[in-house]
């Protein structure tokens, strides 16, 4: 809505990593005094990396990703993408929302087209937008359903449209907030595999919130595990050495897989077990 001309591109030589979360805290004022959600979190993400953030409900995972997408502003510290501080949402950090956030009065193709036409207005005139829309719907296997409205699509299909819309904008960072949480297990596994394929083809940097340890281990380069709120912080980061392209069945047969799985389980259910569980 604000028509800020895109921030000065920081091709200027800097050795700073692609995405830097630099000592951010998020504090909400409440009648009972300040409530600290996130406390002094720092994380550096390389370009093209796949990061999964995992932690119990209410630990501030979504708040952290909001600071990257720009929907929220940190109380202290800052988030920088290519050395430019993030101040507001923008299509270079496209979000795949938990509840899809498709406009129900538009068909799948129109939902994607609204985004493409708005972000690449110059393509609208020479018909390039239509090509981008079609190719991205095809990429998520939805060419057949392009003219259907979200109301007649299944949850998995809606999430595919949402992913197609996000990737059609060629974002620098793709942010997914529990994208597969509401899907049945089979659809979930299918979409995980497709997301990995798309990620490898697009070389996009991904930040994804998940509740599922297995999902994180299958997808991520690194799994960021957060401590419980209030004043949540990063408790431990698992660097996953599993080779790519990954196959779920092969992964499950690797003994290391269970080492990492146990470390994550230990973190979530023993060291930082949820209070009310």
């Amino acid at each position: 809505m604000q028509t800020l001309t895109s921030a000065p591109s920081s091709q200027a030589v800097s050795n700073e990593p692609f995405l830097v979360i630099d000592g951010v805290s998020k504090v909400y004022p409440t009648p009972k005094g300040p409530y600290t959600v996130l406390d002094n979190i720092s994380l550096e993400v390389a370009e093209g990396e796949f990061i999964c953030v995992i932690g119990h409900s209410g630990c501030g995972k979504s708040t952290l990703l909001d600071l990257v997408s720009g929907f929220g502003q940190p109380t202290r510290g800052e988030v920088r993408l290519e050395s430019v501080p993030i101040r507001e949402p923008g299509p270079d950090r496209m979000v795949v929302f938990q509840n899809y956030s498709l406009l129900p009065w538009m068909s799948a193709a129109e939902n994607v087209a609204l985004a493409v036409n708005n972000v690449f207005p110059h393509l609208k005139r020479n018909g390039g937008a239509r090509t981008i829309v079609d190719s991205h719907l095809a990429m998520v296997g939805l060419s057949e359903a392009a003219d259907k409205k979200p109301g007649s699509l299944s949850g998995g299909m809606k999430q595919r449209v949402s992913i197609a819309r996000a990737l059609a904008l060629q974002p620098k960072v793709l942010i997914l907030d529990e994208p597969f949480g509401a899907l049945d297990p089979i659809t979930k596994e299918e979409l995980q595999e497709e997301l990995l394929k798309i990620w490898q083809e697009h070389k996009v940097t991904v930040l994804m919130i998940t509740h599922s340890i297995d999902e994180a281990l299958f997808l991520a380069d690194r799994v960021v595990m957060m401590t419980n709120g209030p004043a949540a912080t990063i408790g431990e980061i698992l660097e996953l050495p599993f080779p790519r392209p990954r196959q779920r069945s092969q992964l499950m047969e690797m003994p290391e897989y269970y080492d990492y799985r146990n470390r994550a389980l230990d973190f979530l259910y023993r060291r930082f077990a949820h209070d009310d569980q």
């Binding site: 800020l4 950090r93 509840n99 956030s101 406009l103 609204l114 985004a115 904008l169």
Partner: peptide, 25 residues
Amino acid sequence: QDYTNVARVLKLRKGAYIREIVIPA
């Protein structure tokens, strides 16, 4: 809020926001 979030992340201009989101919603 889902729809306004979409508008914000796409940086929809005011006219497009009213035409594509406010009116149909």
